[in-house]
């Protein structure tokens, strides 16, 4: 599938501002950061979670734990294909029991990733609450799931792909809309 970049919807500054706002909202909503932990969903939720941790530390002066979640084993949309999925390690080196767990991901689309991530977190223990932070909400939900913190709402067509780039992985911070040149999104 050939992708064509259609539009840049966030640049570095816009991303940073959105994350700052989310950090404030997390602190506000949880009345501080007591019992708050962040869990980044692989792959791009992980650097975003780390940035949120930093911003929260700047606001509150407290370091909160960050875990990494690989939800491959929890997905409900594994289909038989010639390509094998890469399973990576889940690293949540703290207990989630009784905590306010903020899951962090780059984009929310169908909601299936968030559903899988919630199941994965529940298997690690019983959190007090689970909240969801995303940089982009592009709509088209297939499950009754709503993010608690959204960087930007972007109405999209299903043919389009939202590509969140982070400097840790992609070498730059930006969000672009891409469109499949031939055929729809897979």
């Amino acid at each position: 599938m050939v992708l064509r970049e259609k539009a840049k919807i966030m640049d570095e500054q816009a991303m940073d501002r959105a994350l700052s706002r989310i950090a404030h909202e997390v602190v506000e909503r949880n009345k501080g950061v007591e019992g708050v932990v962040l869990v980044g969903i692989r792959r791009r939720g992980v650097p975003l979670a780390n940035r949120l941790k930093q911003k929260i530390a700047e606001i509150e002066g407290k370091n909160i734990p960050v875990g990494v979640l690989d939800i491959t084993l929890y997905r409900d949309d594994l289909a038989l294909k010639a390509e094998q999925p890469v399973v990576q390690k889940t690293e949540v080196p703290f207990s989630v029991k009784g905590k306010h767990v903020v899951m962090v991901d780059d984009v929310i689309y169908t909601g299936r990733t968030a559903r899988a991530a919630m199941d994965a977190i529940m298997d690690l223990g019983r959190p007090r609450t689970i909240q969801l932070a995303v940089l982009v909400d592009r709509g088209h939900r297939e499950l009754p799931i709503r993010p608690d913190y959204v960087g930007k709402n972007v109405p999209t067509s299903q043919k389009e792909i939202i590509h969140v780039k982070v400097s840790e992985i992609d070498g730059a911070d930006e969000v672009v809309i891409e469109e499949a040149r031939d055929g729809g999104e897979e």
């Binding site: 997905r75 294909k81 094998q84 999925p85 780059d106 689309y109 990733t113 982009v136």
Partner: peptide, 13 residues
């Protein structure tokens, strides 16, 4: 998992 988990089709971005 290799035998039964199948390939991974990401529905999201």
């Amino acid at each position: 998992f290799r035998a039964l988990g199948g390939g991974n089709e990401w529905a999201g971005s």
